[in-house]
């Protein structure tokens, strides 16, 4: 193509007209903070690892824990905590390993693939957390169903004698399930929005490199 050859000739000339930075300017730059996507992914991922755990520290959560015990679901709590923490440790290990693999010295495709893999680890972790949250709500609903006095278990005085206990039970279970759906969906939305925004560009470029192979 003639035009591209023309451009090539011009490109060479143009190289000499580029702005030039002095030694000191470059020296100052190497101490500036990076604002790369990888750094953002790292920070946001760490937050995503921490946030589900910070929830346990809120006062309302400790009240909820008491409800769980009163509903006779203490065992579920212990088991799910053990499962959760072993899975969390596994994810953190995976994340760290993948994060370490990211190197700008790799070719573009491998670099993109490694970054996306790192991010995917966090994605799976969040899906795991979201399912755990949702399952907790379901188990709580089941606990209510099996409980003789759900009102007392929830920490309220059973002063509404006039209400049919069976009806009350169903209303409470429905409320818990609906709440479960809302909480899970809201957390999921926030997360996937963050995830999508962060890796939009990476996904696009990676797809393009992958498509070349077809």
């Amino acid at each position: 193509m003639d035009e591209l050859e023309l451009l090539k000739k011009d490109w060479k000339k143009r190289g000499d007209q580029m702005p030039q930075l002095g030694y000191d300017e470059i020296y100052k730059m190497i101490w500036k903070k990076s604002s790369s996507i990888v750094k953002w992914i790292f920070i946001i991922s760490i937050l995503e690892f921490l946030i589900p755990h910070l929830l346990y520290l809120t006062p309302s959560m400790s009240k909820t824990l008491a409800i769980w015990r009163d509903l006779g679901l203490g065992n579920f709590l212990v088991i799910s905590s053990i499962v959760q923490y072993s899975v969390v440790l596994f994810f953190i290990y995976q994340f760290y390993r993948r994060y370490k693999e990211i190197s700008t010295l790799d070719n573009a495709k491998l670099l993109l693939s490694n970054i996306l893999k790192t991010r995917k680890t966090v994605k799976y972790y969040v899906i795991f957390c979201l399912s755990l949250i949702f399952i907790s709500f379901l188990v709580m609903a089941a606990g209510l169903y099996l409980s003789d006095d759900p009102m007392a278990a929830m920490g309220y005085d059973n002063s509404m004698e006039q209400v049919d206990p069976a009806k009350l039970k169903i209303t409470m279970m429905a409320t818990v399930i609906v709440l479960g759906v809302i909480v899970t969906a809201a957390m999921g939305c926030i997360y996937f929005l963050l995830y999508g925004l962060l890796i939009k560009k990476l996904n696009k470029n990676y797809k393009e490199l992958k498509e070349m192979e077809v």
Partner: peptide, 16 residues
Amino acid sequence: TWMYRVALNTAITLYR
């Protein structure tokens, strides 16, 4: 040569 790689990687991947 090494610069080409890192510079392009930064532009394609890391730069926001």
